[in-house]
Amino acid sequence: MVCIQEEKIDVQEILNSVIVPEAGGVDVFIGTTRNHSRGENVLALSYEAYVPMALELLRGIEKELHLRWNVHKVSIVHRIGDVPVTEASVVIAVSADHRAEAFSACRYAIDTLKKDVPIWKKERFENGEVWAENAEAKLAEKK
């Protein structure tokens, strides 16, 4: 299941969505908004997305996880709009027979999301604001 939403993410609900009797391990990654960046205090953060393309790429990541790892269920949820500091901006949950697959697949999902999925974060500081850029995304663009 993949989703982009403005509402606060219910982590327990995402976790529940991947738990199946066949799974022996569930890995969850939670990306939370941080109160500092570039050595300055972040006052507020907001996200925007190219929603239809972002959903398509997230569905692609979900499919790839199923092809490359022996995973049972995958849920990827990204929040957009204003996200207060300490709240989750992204939650990825993966269930698998064993932990190694769950860990690897979950890590691949967040790494790929940060590199390719068209979602942007604006950080507001006391004296200005800036669009953040993921290091992974900058590498991707040099290819």
């Binding site: 901006s89 999301l113 942007w120 993921n134 995304a137």
Partner: peptide, 10 residues
């Protein structure tokens, strides 16, 4: 056609 600056999701 979409113009996509470096992404910063996550």
């Amino acid at each position: 056609v979409a113009i996509i600056p470096p992404v910063s999701g996550g």
